[in-house]
Design a protein around this nucleic acid. Structure first.
Lengths: 212, 212
DNA sequence: TAGATTGTTAATCGATTAACAATC
DNA sequence: TAGATTGTTAATCGATTAACAATC
């Protein structure tokens, strides 16, 4: 199991399958065929079956897929069946907003926020305590943290990420607009909002061009 | 020109080229070859040349690319050489944070925030005025708006998006965790934070599996 | 001119779609 | 059993990489 390398394109589609299956499950539907699911999502039935068969045969010939079972299995593949303790590093606007955001139902639990500003000591944001950056190492020595969310200013990110790697962090959710340089066993997921906006902007112009 | 359809994969790489070229330009570098750029980014020289030649011959044999020129050209392709007036619809946490975020240098200018809560009337967030949702139509009749940022609660998105489409909005930057259903001439760029986290979570588990 | 490096064509690789035998 | 639908193999399509002639 898990021998073949799963392509990035497949991984990217999994959360979307998971979301649709969750909704279908909520609607009380018990089973679904790749054909029906294909109708609801913008994906061919063939692709759905191929994607799922990367991880195992979750369906049954002549029947389709049991929605609850498939939902749970994809949940396991994505790792949302267990908790992922997170810390938010950088307590500015974005850090604040993410702290208040509810990722708990997907298993992502924010444990602490770290910032440099002394006036934030003892504060709570969305029920989550704020600590000083100087406490980072001692905190990570006694607490288990899986993911570090990087919301520090761009010019501080490199230094902060290096420290976190040194303290044993293996996963970053990076909101800074730069590419992190980390060891091979550390994973980075980037959220580059400006890139996203630029793609939108391209598509606006592109459309206008075609319409002319 | 602009006959062939440009693939999504190419578009996705453009903002990254733009960012690297901006940095290289800031470092006072005048020219760069695809080989050198390839070394700095995680992209083959061949891919760089292929990508760029989708839009025209920006380089010169034996010389390479003029950094400033290439930077500006990619800027034009992405449409960041001109202003894109935006409104933020939904003045909650996320709306607030985006309002304070500085997208102006890339040409994305937030003009107004819309919310349903009467207590927000007359407020300013990051210097941007808050209006009531009931004023949406009259506002859009007198102001030019290119992009609507959707930060309203998930259960309101469909209704809000439909209204905005009716009032002539052709581009959405959607932060709600659902797929918008819009006419063909309307473009949607999604920011699905939970999907991003799930991909990270998959890669964490995946790595652990391999390490065993 | 010689050297460098593009623009572009050809080759390879990977991902998506189609088809169908297996089987519930 | 007959019908449905999967799992999987084969065919197609598209994207990436390699190669090289064109040319600055």
């Amino acid at each position: 199991m898990g021998d073949r390398e799963i392509s990035k394109a497949v991984i990217k589609r999994l959360p979307r399958y998971y979301r649709y299956l969750g909704e279908i499950l909520n609607n009380g539907v018990e089973r679904i065929s790749s054909g029906e699911l294909s109708g609801k999502m913008q994906v061919t039935a063939s692709q759905i079956r191929q994607d799922l068969n990367n991880f195992g045969g979750f369906g049954q010939q002549g029947y389709g897929y049991n929605v609850k079972f498939l939902y749970d299995e994809i949940g396991k593949i994505l790792g949302v069946n267990r908790d992922h303790p997170m810390i938010i590093v950088g307590g500015g606007n974005f850090g604040h907003t993410l702290a208040k955001y509810d990722f708990k139902k997907s298993g992502f639990v924010t444990k602490a926020i770290f910032d440099v500003r002394p006036e934030m000591i003892g504060e709570y944001v969305g029920g989550i305590p704020v600590y000083m950056m100087s406490e980072l190492e001692s905190y990570l020595k006694k607490e288990t943290v899986e993911i570090a969310v990087l919301t520090v200013p761009k010019n501080k990110v490199k230094e902060v990420a290096d420290r976190l790697v040194k303290y044993g962090i293996k996963a970053f959710w990076n909101f800074a607009h730069l590419d992190l340089d980390v060891p091979d066993d550390v994973v980075v997921e980037n959220v580059h909002l400006i890139d996203s906006l630029m793609q939108l902007s391209y598509r606006i112009s592109d459309y206008e061009k075609k319409a002319e």
